[in-house]
Amino acid sequence: TEVDLHLGDITIKLKDVSEEIVKRAKELFKNGWSAEFVKKWIEEAVK
């Protein structure tokens, strides 16, 4: 499945990412993480 994760003005296309990771990524962004950091976190999380 593909998900578009909207973080501010940046959209990250996610492939084969669990709902849990998407939820967590949104929380991290809301908590002040930059979109770049969230993207890196996701990449690490799906390895």
Rank of each mutant, 00 (worst) to 15 (best):
residue 35 A to Q: 05
residue 6 H to L: 11
residue 36 E to A: 13
residue 44 E to L: 11
residue 37 F to D: 11
residue 23 K to C: 10
residue 14 L to Y: 05
residue 33 W to P: 00
residue 43 E to D: 09
residue 4 D to C: 13
residue 24 R to K: 14
residue 45 A to Q: 14
residue 24 R to F: 15
residue 12 I to T: 02
residue 39 K to M: 15
residue 8 G to D: 05
residue 20 E to P: 04
residue 47 K to P: 04
residue 40 K to W: 15
residue 34 S to D: 08
residue 47 K to M: 14
residue 42 I to S: 00
residue 26 K to T: 11
residue 26 K to Y: 15
residue 20 E to A: 13
residue 12 I to N: 03
residue 7 L to N: 02
residue 24 R to E: 08
residue 38 V to S: 00
residue 19 E to A: 11
residue 14 L to A: 03
residue 32 G to E: 01
residue 27 E to V: 09
residue 16 D to E: 08
residue 7 L to S: 02
residue 19 E to D: 14
residue 19 E to M: 11
residue 23 K to G: 07
residue 44 E to K: 08
residue 3 V to D: 08
residue 25 A to H: 00
residue 34 S to C: 05
residue 39 K to I: 15
residue 33 W to G: 04
residue 10 I to P: 02
residue 4 D to R: 07
residue 42 I to H: 00
residue 40 K to H: 10
residue 44 E to H: 13
residue 19 E to G: 08
residue 31 N to K: 12
residue 40 K to S: 08
residue 9 D to T: 10
residue 17 V to Y: 05
residue 32 G to T: 01
residue 1 T to Q: 13
residue 8 G to K: 04
residue 31 N to P: 00
residue 2 E to N: 11
residue 13 K to R: 12
residue 7 L to V: 04
residue 7 L to Y: 04
residue 40 K to D: 07
residue 30 K to G: 09
residue 36 E to Y: 08
residue 25 A to R: 00
residue 38 V to D: 00
residue 16 D to I: 05
residue 35 A to F: 10
residue 26 K to M: 15
residue 15 K to F: 15
residue 43 E to R: 05
residue 30 K to Y: 10
residue 16 D to P: 03
residue 43 E to L: 12
residue 22 V to R: 06
residue 19 E to H: 10
residue 44 E to I: 10
residue 25 A to Y: 01
residue 30 K to E: 11
residue 3 V to C: 09
residue 34 S to N: 07
residue 14 L to G: 03
residue 43 E to T: 09
residue 46 V to T: 10
residue 7 L to R: 02
residue 15 K to G: 07
residue 40 K to R: 13
residue 20 E to S: 10
residue 45 A to Y: 11
residue 42 I to E: 00
residue 13 K to C: 11
residue 18 S to Q: 06
residue 8 G to L: 04
residue 28 L to A: 02
residue 43 E to P: 01
residue 19 E to W: 13
residue 2 E to K: 06
residue 6 H to I: 15
residue 18 S to P: 14
residue 29 F to N: 01
residue 29 F to K: 01
residue 39 K to H: 07
residue 12 I to R: 02
residue 32 G to D: 01
residue 5 L to T: 02
residue 19 E to Y: 10
residue 8 G to N: 05
residue 27 E to R: 07
residue 16 D to Q: 07
residue 28 L to D: 00
residue 27 E to N: 06
residue 6 H to C: 07
residue 41 W to K: 00
residue 23 K to A: 15
residue 43 E to Q: 11
residue 16 D to G: 15
residue 38 V to L: 04
residue 14 L to Q: 01
residue 36 E to L: 09
residue 43 E to F: 14
residue 6 H to S: 08
residue 24 R to V: 08
residue 35 A to R: 04
residue 27 E to H: 08
residue 4 D to I: 15
